[in-house]
Simulated assay, not measured.
Amino acid sequence: MSSATPAAPMTVPAGAETATVAAGCFWGVEHMFRREFKGKGLYDARVGYIGGDTADPNYKIVCSGRTGHAEALQVVYDPAQVSYRTLLEFFYKMHDPTTANRQGPDVGTQYRSAIFYHNADQEKIAKDITERASKEWYKGKVATQVLPAGHWYDAETYHQLYLDKNPSGYECPSHFLRNFPALSE
């Protein structure tokens, strides 16, 4: 099995921003974000690995739980059409952030809930949304990590758009949209 490769630079309009989140098995996370934000400011979404200390990881080694990497989603979006805050509220609605290193039956550090921020503004928003989601939606039980984004590695090609190519493929049972009211400002 080949190693993942660093993300190639994308050609996107000036002003585009990047958001990186981990919420368990990356197939369902990618699928849900694409479905929700297609035509609403999403330029691209790709699955990959981040947060660990192993260079050039691949799926098999990440699944071992020994790399420190999380299965993650990186989106490039137009902040004039969709805000970082909106992306993070969706993130908290579409998975279970209350379990450390687990989503449904998927267990291990690679399945942790995390937000990987790319700048000081994102860090501030991520901490604020995490605090509000914990208080207002999850009764103080959010286990999501808020961490600086490190080196990103794209997952192997067969993982990209996996559920589009395999409609009956595995989806984590904890990946569904919860019906919560908007977070307070």
Rank of each mutant, 00 (worst) to 15 (best):
Q122H: 01
Y138T: 15
G108C: 15
V29L: 02
Y111P: 02
A155W: 10
K135N: 09
K165Y: 14
T109M: 04
L88K: 13
P105N: 10
K40R: 02
Y77E: 01
V62A: 09
G48K: 06
K93G: 02
D121F: 02
P173S: 05
F33K: 00
K165E: 15
A22E: 13
K139I: 10
V146W: 09
M94L: 14
S113W: 05
V29W: 00
A8C: 05
Y138P: 15
S174I: 00
D56G: 10
Y43K: 07
A23E: 01
E185R: 14
L88P: 07
C63P: 08
G24S: 00
G15A: 09
H151M: 12
S2D: 09
P6E: 13
A55V: 15
R85D: 15
A70R: 12
T54A: 05
G51L: 09
H159I: 06
N179S: 13
K165W: 13
K141C: 00
G140E: 14
G150W: 12
T18H: 11
A133F: 03
P105R: 09
L87K: 01
Q74H: 03
T20I: 13
H151F: 11
K60A: 05
G51E: 13
G24H: 06
G65K: 03
A4H: 08
S83F: 08
K93W: 10
F26W: 12
A14H: 03
D128N: 02
S2Y: 00
S134N: 06
R46H: 01
G65W: 05
M94K: 00
H151Q: 14
H31Y: 10
V142W: 14
T67P: 04
T54K: 04
R112E: 11
D121M: 05
D53P: 02
A8M: 09
F90K: 02
Q145G: 12
K141E: 06
C25Y: 00
Q160Y: 12
S134C: 06
H95V: 00
A23S: 10
C63F: 08
E156W: 06
A120Y: 04
D106C: 02
D154A: 04
S3E: 15
L163F: 03
K124A: 15
A155H: 11
Q110M: 07
G28C: 01
